[in-house]
Design a protein around this nucleic acid. Structure first.
Length: 477
RNA sequence: GCCCCCAUCGUCUAGUGGCCUAGGACGCCGGCCUCUCACGCCGGAAACAGGGGUUCGAGUCCCCUUGGGGGCGCCA
């Protein structure tokens, strides 16, 4: 078998949304699995709606997700002359014709067809008129759909899907301004680019039938197709703007890891037995279209979060630190804290301090965003802002305990075991439960009621800073 | 309206005629661990949409119903 070539072909009319990301992932995995390559084609033939920003957002999103492609992204619009050449060929061969119907007439026809219970397809009134430019009215080019038989798609996911020829429309393949439309351009490009496998959303299934007709008219062999089920929102309808329309950059801003998103997305519609966690290597090794389900899947943030938590915990510290630093400039809401963190992490010692705390921190954070707020005490400057729950602990006797504890800590050797020993002894001799000592300490040291183990925190902050933060609270008593 | 697709716990899914008293994961509930929160561990509730066939035997095959989804542009 020749080399597998897949392609991801988004239209640059918006960011890379989550469904597109999964389509790209599947194309990429499929190609990698077979030792082939993925191509990237930007379907920008709609000049009105295509934007440079969207184009860049898509590239950026793919890169962040860790997906790559062969060569430069291909602009579909740049191939317009080639598309026109094929349109002309179809006209010359009598497989396409000029049509003078205006958009208004077409709309009226559709409305009437619907009212009469007929399919809303073009009634082909211009099919045998033999119209050709120049003409007094604007002319589009329509493809002559076969009038009998059926169009069969042998889809790798959907199975054999049949469309009766009568149900097929004489679709427009060139607009009045002469520019070719999507279905024509896609066929020509996939053919010219040597695409062997098309993996795309099931919303393209009817396009698959249309494109198959064009392949047949041109005498070309269609690529193998796999139409993957769509991703639905929580309400069960196709994911769209009304569900919050999130692009991958939004997931990045929420602190999700690319490896986690890849893992989650792969599991949406595809499975490998009972496995839930996949490294990219495993994904590549195990991925196959035969294990893709046929029904749509709902996007579930809770599961994504859980998968992300696994990756947070299990990624090696070095990679996690890198991801964290990459994340900071994109952090949503916590821009100030992110900036402070970035500044601290620029210095060697700041980075070392953070790295030392990372093992305790990453256990507790489900996302990079949570990691940032959880690690806030490492980046904050004195005097600390204390959250209400922590303040309550300090107010309810916490400060008094700290006042008595402070001198004890001052003469304790600043090592985790020694500190633990000292604090436990202090609690015991004062007939206090450890929690009664640890919680005020935590509040003073981190400004929060939640943090990694308190002795760990003590060491991470260092003797000087720790004592100063405690003293800040004792002074307020 | 017309065409096409889909249907196992709330969600993602395993299941390819007997291994199913239907498994896993997330979430949920209870417990253990414990300086907080997580993690981890133990336990629990929770599904084959309905009806007909086929078969010795059906979650698995066929048909119908119902429900859901997608498409029907001079958008992609």
């Amino acid at each position: 078998m020749s080399k597998i070539i897949t392609r991801f072909a988004p239209s640059p009319t918006g960011f890379l949304h989550i469904g597109g990301a999964r389509t790209a992932l599947f194309n990429w995995l499929f190609a990698k699995h077979h030792g082939g390559e993925m191509l990237l084609r930007i379907e920008d033939t709609d000049r009105e709606r295509s934007t440079k920003e969207a184009h860049e957002a898509i590239i950026e999103g793919l890169k962040w997700l860790g997906l790559d492609w062969r060569g430069e992204p291909v602009s579909q619009f740049s191939r317009v002359e080639r598309h026109k050449e094929i349109v002309q060929r179809l006209v010359d061969e009598g497989k396409a014709y000029y049509c003078q119907c205006s958009p208004e007439e077409l709309a009226a026809m559709r409305e009437q067809a619907r009212a009469e219970g007929r399919p809303m397809t073009y009634d082909r009134r211009c099919r045998d008129l033999g119209l050709c430019p120049p003409h007094e009215k604007p002319l589009v080019v329509r493809f002559k759909a076969p009038r009998e038989g059926e169009i069969v798609i042998d889809d790798a996911v959907q199975g054999r899907v049949e469309f009766k020829a009568q149900a097929m429309d004489d679709l427009v393949i060139a607009r009045a301004d002469g520019t070719p439309t999507y279905n024509l351009a896609v066929v020509v490009d996939d053919h010219d680019m040597g695409v062997t496998h098309i993996i795309r959303g099931a919303d393209h299934l009817t396009n698959a039938a249309r494109q198959t007709m064009i392949y047949e008219a041109l005498g070309w062999t269609p690529p193998r197709m796999a139409h993957i089920p769509l991703i639905h929102g929580p309400d069960g309808a196709k994911l769209s703007k009304r569900h919050g329309a999130l692009g991958v950059e939004a997931y990045r801003a929420m602190g999700y890891l690319p490896e986690a998103l890849r893992n989650y997305l792969a599991r949406l519609g595809w499975s490998h037995g009972d496995e839930e966690i996949f490294t990219t290597e495993q994904l590549i090794e195990w991925f196959g279209v035969e294990a893709i389900g046929k029904s749509a899947a709902r996007f579930d943030f809770a599961k994504l979060e859980s998968v992300n938590g696994w990756w947070m915990r299990n990624l090696d510290d070095e990679t996690l630190l890198r991801r964290f630093i990459e994340f900071l400039p994109h952090a949503e809401d916590d821009a100030e804290l992110a900036k402070a963190a970035l500044k601290v992490l620029e210095t060697d010692e700041g980075r070392a301090r953070f790295a030392a705390s990372l093992p305790g921190l990453k256990e507790r954070a489900k996302t990079l965003k949570e990691l940032l707020s959880l690690a806030g005490y490492l980046f904050a400057a004195r005097p600390l802002t204390v959250i209400p729950k922590a303040e309550k602990i300090l107010r309810n006797g916490g400060r008094e305990v700290l006042a008595r504890l402070l001198p004890v800590l001052e003469r304790t050797d600043w090592r985790e075991e020694a500190l633990e020993e000292a604090v436990k002894a202090f609690a015991e001799s004062n007939e206090l439960k450890l929690g009664k000592v640890a919680q005020p300490l935590r509040a003073a040291l981190t400004g929060s009621n939640v943090s990694p183990g308190i002795f760990e925190v003590l060491v991470a902050l260092g003797r000087e800073e720790s004592l100063a933060r405690i003293a800040d609270q004792v002074r307020d008593a």
